[in-house]
Structures are given as C-alpha cells and as structure tokens.
Design a protein around this nucleic acid. Structure first.
Lengths: 331, 331
DNA sequence: CCAAATACCGCAAAGGTTTGCGAAAATGTT
DNA sequence: AACATTTTCGCAAACCTTTGCGGTATTTGG
C-alpha cells in the first residue's frame, strides 16, 4: 500500500501546522503568499488529494446519487442512465446503480444501502410489485430526496418525473385513426403499473369518441415471449387485426417476431405502431413508427429536479416530458 | 434533518462508554450478556446504523467498486453489468458506474474519481481510443486492483477477462463450413480494437485451410447504419453471398435490417450467423444462430478475479470465457 | 519609542467508529 | 480473609479534514 499524502504529512515536512496547510490549499486570506506557494508546490509534487471519507464525515454528505431500477436489461434505461450519469459527472456527483430484479425485498435493501451510504439523493423506478412506498418516503425524512421516474407510485405525495403516458397513447391512437384503420389490436403490459393503466385508458378513450368506426381489441402481455405468443394467436384468427399498437419496446419485440414468423409484410399486411424510447423501432425495416418517450430528456429533467431538491426545494412536483411522433414506415 | 443516532448517543442514554456500546453491538466477548441485550434493544428501537463515513475513514476503504465503460448504450454491457451488480450486492459491495463516452479525457477523470473515492477496485472496459493505460496502472500502485474486461489493452501486464474471441470466430466459421456454404460475407467492426483483429484472423484462417472451397469476402462497418448500407450493397451485387457472418450485435442489427428491406427469407435466401451476447438474435424469426459471448458469465468471472485481487492476490492473469454455439434457425 | 493595528499562524474540537491496554469489579481459590 | 483469576468495562488514540478562536510577531501610526 502506497502511503497516501495527508495534510499532516505536508505540515510535518514544511514544519507548519495542519490548519495552515489546509488553509493554504484553500487559498485562505490568512495565509501569506509565500507559505501558500510552498504548500501548493509540495502538495502537487506529492499528489495530495483530500481524503473523501474525512470530508464526508465532517459534512455528513457524499456527492453520490443512487439510481434504483428493477433491471438494467430493459431497453428504456440505457438512455436514461446515460443522461443522468452525464449530468452527475459535470456536476461533480458520482452515480451508484442498484438493481432490484423486480424483487421488493432487494428493493428495500437497496433503500437501506442508500441510507447507510448517506447518498445525496435517490432516483427510483419502482418494480411492478412495489405496493408500499413507505420505505422510500422514510428517505425523505432523513433529508435524502427521492425522485421517482418512469414507473412511479400513484396517488402519493412524492416527486415524480414521467413520460406523457396519456398524451403518447393519444397520439398513437390518433395516428391510427387518421390512417383509417379498421381493426386495431392494442397490446399492453402489466396492469399493476400506473404507466399501463394510463396508456390503456387514454388509448381506449380515443376509440370511443363519437363517429369512430374503428374497432379496438386489447390484450395484455407480461413479457416479449408472451407478446409473441398472443400476437401469433390474434394474427392467425379469422378476425385478424390490420394494425397492432404496442405499449412498450418489450411488447414490440415480441410482436415483431410473430409478424416475421408469419411472413407478413409491414405495412401492407399489417401496420404497427408503438410507444418507445427509439432504439428498437429502428432495428427493423421498415422502421416502426413510434411515439417517442425519450429516456434522455427524462433523465435531464429528473436531474434538474434532483438538484432543486438537494438545494432545499421541499415542494413536491410531478413533471412530464412531452412525446412526439417519429414516423417510420410501418403504418 | 432528523438526528442520526450514534454510538455516543446510545452510550449517553445507557450511561455506558462508547467503546462498550460498540463492542456490545459487535457481540464482543468482553461484554456481558445483560449489557449486550440492553444496548441492542435500544439500538434497534433507535434504528441505529453505523456511520459509513466514519468506518471508511478508519479502514481507508469503502465497499464500493467502480465500473467504467465507454457507453452504457452498447448491447453487451447490460448483462455484464447485471451480473457484476448482482455479485456486488450479495458480497456487500456497491457498484459505481461511470461512462467515458469514448472520450479518453473523461476516462482519465473517471480514474481520478475512483481514486478520490478510494474504491476497492475498478472494472474497466477501455475506449477504442485509449492508447496509454498508464493512468490505470497507477491505480494498482495505490492498491486499487483493476480488472479489464471485454475491450482490453494489448500486450500489457494487467488483469484481463475476455471472451474467447478466436474460439468464437472459429466456431462460427466451422458451423458455416459444416453447412457447405459457398460464398460467405464476413462483416467486422473497428479494426483498431484487438477484439476485431482476433476475430478477423481466426475467422479468415478457417477458410484458408486445405480442401476448403468456400469463398470468403470480408468487409468492415463502424456502425449499424454502416453495416446496413454495406450489406445492401453486397446483397444486390450479382455475386451475392449465401451466408453472412456478423462479428457483433451492432453489425447484426444493420445486416438484419438490410435483409428485411430486401424481403429475403432466412435461411432460404440467405443464412446468417453472428457472435453475440444473446439478446438481439432472439428478437428475430427465425432466431439467429450465434456464438454466445456471455456477458453474464464474463461478469461472474471478472468478479471472482476481483475478489481474489482484493484479498491480496497480486499475480496477473488473463482469463477467458468459453463460447458456445446457440442454434437458431438462421443457417 | 510606545501603542495599536495588522498579518500570519497554531491549538483544539468536532465528526463517528474501532481497538489495545489498563483498571475496576466480580468471582474463585486456598 | 487474602490472594489469584476472570469478567466487564472505560480511556484514549487514531483515521483526516475543517474552522472558530486565540496567540505571536511584525508593521503602522502617532
């Protein structure tokens, strides 16, 4: 172990007190220029770096944020995390990433870990199984702000940053209607999640307006495999849809696999539209038309809100990122 | 700010010394059972949690690992990170993720951050532009072990964990040869990377053995868009290949888009085989046959090696994860 | 030349935990 | 009852930094 250089060591070499060295390095007016120069020189040659732990102990605050997600393997998070991480770096924060694996027990443990590490704040995306967000709220009590993103709890007094679920679903529905489609299959995810409920309601609503003759059938899938199987079923039934709406990337991948399996041509045999972060739709030809829910923008927004909380803003807010239609050739 | 409960506070309430309380909570034999019981009871009702900063300061070691990657948006990392993160959690470590964005300046800054935070170790995947790994080696000097993974520096004395590039390419080539293909197009990535060189050489070698009549054409693509365009070119030329080998997921996505665009049927009109982590090949129908380079296994291996380093192993090692063929229906 | 002001610097405490060592109290032994 | 042992606990230092306050020197003004 190489000996780390500390204030004490520098002070000892220069025959100064620790406090003088500390102040010299901080350009304190009490210290003469001559002394400052000496100290700074030695400090640089000795590669002095203040001990983070000591500083944390004093300030009771580490420049670290926690990011909690159910799993890193969901397509959405990449851009969100990238975005947050970028902001953290430029602001001198580090980011600690924790996964829960959809396991609420691990989730609670991660909360504990965040508290033990006395992080400056937590970005949280809850699991579908999380019903009690009490543990999260307890973080707020010890002055650790929590910003929920994407999958957020309902009806609670908490800071939330989400995509415009209703708006996104509405845009998708309107796009379908504008194209005069006759029979739409909408596939949605886990109904436990508010994100699903919102998208489902907004999407369905659009088809229940007066003068709308387009038929809507809805189905639910819990994984891309599930979506694959269910789509196969719908597409081989006699009353097959002419358009499929996918609530998420995960569902889209399952749907696309089924379409390829049946050898259907998009958009001639079947039309597809999705709500997506943008990576997956661009993997196919023709590219899938989707309503963008930008993880990147969401990350920026979440970080801004976090910084406000860290610097004392106590009031609670729900922020929403607008969605836009990105045209592919799938409808 | 809620007042945190400390040893001092507990000791004050129970009229004991701080050291006694500390020892009682650690089940030290010096302390009587009666005292222990009292202390533990109060500690739990007061929700005592040891101050991580103080412990770090004492031990000069935080149970935190750093993970450095060029960018989180590459497909490969998800499973690797998941895997590492999982191991960290069960071992009581936290994981700090840092991105460099292919920028060596940021990379160096991330190294600095790791040192400042005196992390217990660093998992590093270097950028294609990283030529000088001196800054990494300096971490080793201050007793912070560095495990390189995936994209690793060449010819250097460092701990490395990588996929079996040569073996994977060889398996892919042999699979193609066994199927008696006539004309193969191999698409590779950035030739700056050792990973590309290894795969290219091993793959090409297989076609230069005696008695091999299969023709090989190689091409290079720097992005999935690039792969898409180049594939379109090859597939519309008069001397079009009957099989395409994709060195990576990124290339595979571009190739598949081109195949879909031309309406070719896999494996009848064209065969495809790839080296992949496994997520992308399963998105298509038929699923793409691929040689698996498991980020998951790689993560486990890297973590094992890290733990060895942390507990004192100083010798240097290159570890390799075997590859296996995962049959899809694409060849 | 003395008093007052200024420049420069050190002492010590605080932040919370751990741990070697010594001391006091309890128990055992003769 | 006197001594030896064991049990039980407290003192204090160490990890490193920051900062209020107080203390010397040196300089300035009169």
């Amino acid at each position: 172990m190489k000996h780390n250089t500390t204030l004490k060591k520098i002070s000892h070499i220069l025959d100064l007190s620790i406090s003088t060295v500390s102040r010299a390095l901080k350009d304190h007016p009490d210290i003469s220029d001559k002394t400052k120069k000496k100290v700074i020189e030695l400090a640089t040659t000795l590669e002095y770096e203040p001990n983070t732990y000591a500083i944390n102990l004093r300030t009771n605050n580490s420049k670290v944020f926690t990011l909690m997600v159910p799993s890193l393997t969901y397509y959405f998070y990449d851009s969100f995390i990238s975005s947050i991480e970028e902001e953290c770096r430029t602001s001198g924060y580090a980011l600690m990433i924790l996964q829960s694996g959809d396991n609420t027990e691990i989730e609670i443990n991660n909360i504990k870990l965040s508290r033990q590490n006395r992080v400056s704040g937590v970005f949280a995306c809850i699991t579908p199984n999380t019903t009690d967000i009490g543990p999260f709220l307890k973080l707020d009590e010890v002055d650790i702000p929590v910003i929920f993103f994407d999958k957020v709890p309902e009806n609670e007094a908490c800071n939330r940053v989400c995509v415009a679920d209703k708006q996104a679903a509405k845009i998708a529905a309107e796009t379908i209607l504008k194209k005069q489609k006759k029979k739409v299959l909408g596939i949605f995810g886990n109904t436990n999640l508010s994100i699903t409920k919102k998208r489902l309601i907004a999407f369905s609503d659009a088809f229940q307006q007066p003068n709308i003759k387009t038929k809507l059938v809805t189905d639910f899938a819990l994984s891309n495999d599930d979506a694959h199987k269910k789509t196969l079923g719908h597409l081989t039934s006699k009353n097959k849809p002419d358009t499929i709406f996918c609530m998420s990337d995960e569902i889209l991948t399952g749907v696309m696999k089924a379409i390829q399996e049946l050898g259907l041509k998009i958009p001639f045999d079947i039309s597809v539209i999705a709500i997506s972060n943008g990576i997956i739709p661009k993997l196919y030809y023709p590219e899938i038309t989707f309503v963008e829910t930008s993880g990147y923008k969401l990350g920026k927004l979440a970080f801004t809100r976090m910084m406000a909380c860290v610097s004392g803003s106590t009031f609670i807010q729900e922020l929403i990122v607008e969605s836009v239609l990105v045209e592919g050739g799938s409808i």
